[in-house]
Design a protein around this nucleic acid. Structure first.
Length: 849
RNA sequence: GCGGGCGUGGUGGAACUGGUAGACACGCCAGAUUUAGGAUCUGGUGACGAAAGUCGUGGGGGUUCGAAUCCCUCCGCCCGCACCA
């Protein structure tokens, strides 16, 4: 019994595909295009199972669409800038460029061993100046369009590292490495004006029909459109007014205080002369800028002593507090607090003994809206509210808005939670922002002819802070405008910028301009994008924004970058712990005959935990490279597609991949040593049965691949393989032999996109001359899909009592007559009389007695 | 707290718009073959029952001739968002 030599075969076919440029994509205007893209990886050095799943799914789609006649673009690249390279540089004394390049080389090898149908000619890397020079050009174009700008913004500042930290690098208000409290510092930062497209980005989510609903919902919440009222309150004893924003103007008569953000200009102004307020503001700053940090803190405030006059009750004066829970970034940075109907305001009021006046009474409530610890935020009837009494919330909002608008102290306003995108990073390993800061001329763009602004190689990471900032020569330049001494911008771009347009660059990866318009027009948008749900908001929203910005600058003609989106689930594995609760790697444990799991080295029992997503910290990881070395790429790929639907989590098991390996060898034997029929009886209709089944399965696998139901496709292929194994391929019966061969060819074509190496090998073994990869997708013969007989279920009172095998599309009366004739049905009816019968054509007869 | 999703054998999961629940696979059991096997082949495998049959898709209720699927309610798990005014 022979075995499939995957090592030899996989390498052979990968070589042939490369030699024949099978997957090299070229623009062909007369052919329909299909652009499949998987989210490009960060080059960490090794691929993990998540990549294997992601790229396998993408490859199935690419190969399938290719077979269907589409001109497929399926590229791959590297999201190669970012912090890990700098950390590695520090730890291993390696230059980030060198570290990144080595990692890319290794990961490329690993990816290539998977046999994915990438057009490697289009490979790009974001850290390569041939890529980022164009990004710099795009940045300058955005600057010209007013879509990029610089302003002061609050950041997390690590005083030891002398650097800005991302929110996720702040743990419990402390720097992740330094361990010292992070400060909120105001720095000049670059922003992209994503808010200019807030409405469009929200509205057009609706059009993304091939996106998962939950991703669209997440983006909707993230953009967070709200309709409210912008209002002016008189500040007693001052000339200026306090501008605030609310969506609950109906509760205006319940207002008992006003609160402003620590960064609010009024707070800043008052702080200059009051030390205690300064201290309070810095206390708020120590919280960090992350919303989570602000959220978990107690609500505290500082009474400024100032009062604001209530707009409808001139006798009521509201104390103005500076409060830590008011965000400068949202609305106007100032609110009025109505404790009875907002939980935060209530917590705050209870702490500072402020009045809690209920103004909205729930229609069900029996206590006239009395509030203790829980604010009432629902709808109801207005009380204690002067001219609003008796109205509901919506009516009251309208009434307040009208009156305030008439008095010119209020204006209906739409606000968004979405904020402009801060892209400044005080780091080395990123795309330099191509501007020069001149004392005379201000911000001066680097002239196009001087692009790219490349990163200097001679940098050290020994000392803290941004290496670009302390570089001896790099940042000192002449102002391109006036010629006087000036400095380069030392901030680099957030890596999300790099990934916001790479999909477009793939259309013309070596163009001299950022994008070749013709190529972009041909290939874009991406027809199917595939990646993890973790990018549901930021990456996808930034890319949607960037696409619109690029359209504004005339680079492309589409609004939406990704027409279809598939978010695949994670790869999970059981977890293991020893008796001291230390995590163990799967290869450190073994399962004995009795099902007991023990530590291989110590023999001690191991606690098996539930399956969780593979992660290094839990050690429940399986290295794709070792799986590919043991069972081959096709086995890993097939496993990734079996069992779980792509959008759900998948559990990796040893027994599962062993099962795949057995299946691969079964297919191999079907092709090389077909069952000869010794000792088996051949059904008289064996040939027809084979043909019907193989065409039915061809049809359903085609549907499954169209709908990304890979697990169902796998099941159907198993079914066909089972039937082939059960049907002797007798040499004496020409009809059976032909049907068998046809079915085997269909089977091979069906596995082609999923197990491409095995597919090619079997295809060649069957004597076909060309590559399977070049073979058009087969079509099922409709005649063979029509069944000669259908099985109709016969129910009595909804319970199955028998089945009929009859020709399809029969008259209802005939069907009922045959049904009532069945022995079992007669018995079930007994002496009762038939009340009525329901017939579902070709499916069910239900006899009601 | 708000929003979304999910709950089906020992396990992963099938079941299209309500119409044969458990496809397919893993595991397990029995047998064959083999020096042996983690290889291969055959048969079995939701529960209870000798069988006819009964029960069965997280619990309870409802709509329907008929419910895993629709509605209500409760329980459990997962994900996202959140001092957003």
């Amino acid at each position: 019994m022979s075995r499939y030599n995957f090592r030899e075969c996989e390498q052979k076919w990968q070589r042939i595909w490369t030699e024949r440029e099978t997957f090299v994509a070229r623009e062909q205007l007369n052919r329909p295009k299909y652009y499949v893209l998987e989210m490009f990886p960060y080059p960490s050095g090794r691929i993990h199972m998540g990549h294997v799943r992601n790229y396998t799914i993408g490859d199935v789609v690419a190969r399938y669409k290719r077979a269907c006649g589409f001109n497929v673009l399926h590229p791959m690249g590297w999201d190669a800038f970012g912090l890990p390279a700098e950390n590695a540089a520090l730890e291993n004394n390696l230059h980030p460029a060198k570290w990144t390049k080595d990692n890319i080389d290794n990961m490329r090898d690993e990816l290539q061993s998977m046999g994915i149908s990438y057009d490697w000619d289009r490979e790009l890397s974001t850290c390569d100046h041939t890529y980022y020079r164009h990004q710099q050009k795009l940045f300058l174009d955005l600057l010209g369009e007013g879509l990029a700008y610089r302003r002061e913004a609050v950041v997390n500042w690590d005083p030891i590292e002398q650097t800005v930290l991302a929110n996720e690098q702040v743990i419990d208000g402390k720097g992740w490495r330094s361990g010292v409290p992070v400060e909120r510092r105001t720095l000049s930062q670059w922003f992209l004006r994503i808010t200019a497209f807030a409405d469009e980005l929200l509205e057009e989510l609706e059009k993304l029909e091939r996106w998962p609903d939950r991703v669209r919902l997440m983006q909707e919440n993230w953009i967070g459109r709200s309709e409210g009222l912008l209002m002016q309150f008189e500040i007693i004893g001052r000339d200026d007014t306090l501008e605030l924003y609310t969506t609950r103007h109906d509760t205006i008569f319940g207002a008992s205080f006003c609160a402003i953000a620590p960064e609010h200009p009024l707070a800043q102004e008052l702080a200059t002369s009051r030390l205690s307020l300064q201290e309070f503001i810095s206390e708020c700053r120590r919280l960090g800028t992350s919303e989570v940090a602000i959220e978990t803190a107690d609500k505290i405030g500082f009474d400024t002593g100032l009062k604001a006059r209530h707009p409808f009750r001139s006798d009521v004066e509201l104390p103005i507090y500076v409060a830590n829970f008011v965000l400068m970034e949202y609305g106007t940075g100032a609110i009025f607090g109505c404790p009875a109907h907002d939980q935060r305001d209530l917590d705050f009021a209870n702490k500072y003994n402020l009045q809690v006046l209920p103004v909205v009474a729930s229609s069900e409530s029996t206590n006239h809206g009395v509030i203790s610890d829980e604010a009432y935020v629902g709808d109801g009837i207005l009380i204690n509210s002067d001219f609003l009494n008796g109205l509901n919330v919506v009516e009251a909002k309208r009434a307040v808005a009208e009156r305030m608008t008439r008095r010119s102290i209020g204006e209906k306003t739409v606000k968004y939670r979405l904020r402009d995108w801060g892209i400044s990073r005080q780091r080395y390993w990123g795309c330099p922002i191509p501007v020069i800061n001149c004392d005379e001329c201000g911000i001066v763009p680097v002239p196009d002819t001087e692009l790219p602004v490349t990163l200097p190689d001679d940098v050290s990471f020994e000392t803290s802070g941004n290496p670009l900032d302390r570089h001896s020569t790099w940042k000192h330049v002449e102002c391109p405008s006036c010629g006087s001494k000036a400095e380069r911008e030392t901030d680099t771009c957030d890596t999300f910028v790099d990934s916001s347009w790479y999909f477009a660059r793939f259309a013309s990866p070596s163009a001299d301009t950022p994008l070749d318009r013709d190529a972009a027009d041909y290939w874009l948008p991406v027809d199917q994008y595939i990646g993890g749900i973790e990018h549901a908001i930021l990456h996808l929203l930034y890319s949607r924004f960037f696409t619109r910005a690029l359209k504004t600058c005339g680079y492309l003609g589409v609004d939406e970058p990704f027409e279809g989106l598939l978010t695949q689930g994670m790869v999970c594995h059981e977890t293991y712990r020893d008796k001291d609760q230390n995590w163990l790697y799967p290869e450190q444990v073994q399962r004995g005959e009795n099902g007991k799991v023990t530590h291989i080295e110590t023999g001690e029992p191991v606690t098996v935990g539930r399956s969780e997503s593979m992660s290094k910290s839990r050690r429940n990881v399986v290295d794709p490279a070792s799986i590919i070395a043991t069972y081959g790429a096709d086995a890993a790929r097939w496993f990734m597609l079996s069992d779980s639907p792509p959008e759900r989590d998948l559990e990796w098991t040893d027994s599962g991949v062993e099962g795949v390996w057995r299946f691969i060898n079964r297919l191999w034997r079907l092709s090389t040593e077909p069952p000869n029929g010794s000792g088996k009886s051949v059904r008289p209709d064996a040939a027809l049965n084979l043909r019907r089944t193989s065409h039915r399965i061809l049809s359903s696998v085609t549907d499954d691949l169209e709908g990304f139901h890979f697990n169902r496709a796998v099941a159907r292929v198993h079914e066909l393989a089972n039937l082939l194994g059960d049907t002797p391929r007798t040499e004496c019966d020409q009809e059976v032999k032909q049907a068998w061969q046809e079915a085997l060819d269909i089977l091979i074509q069906l596995i082609g996109p999923m197990m491409p190496h095995l597919g090619e090998e079997l295809w060649a073994h069957q004597g076909h001359k060309g590559l399977l990869a070049d073979e058009p997708w087969p079509t099922a013969n409709p005649d063979l899909l029509q069944n000669e007989l259908v099985t109709i279920i016969v129910q009595v009172n909804g319970k199955v009592r028998g089945r009929l095998q009859i020709a399809p599309d029969q008259d209802d009366k005939n069907v009922v007559r045959s049904a009532l004739d069945l022995e079992n049905v007669k018995r079930a009816i007994g002496s009762r009389s038939v009340n009525k019968t329901i017939v579902v054509p070709n499916r069910v007869v239900n006899v009601v007695v």
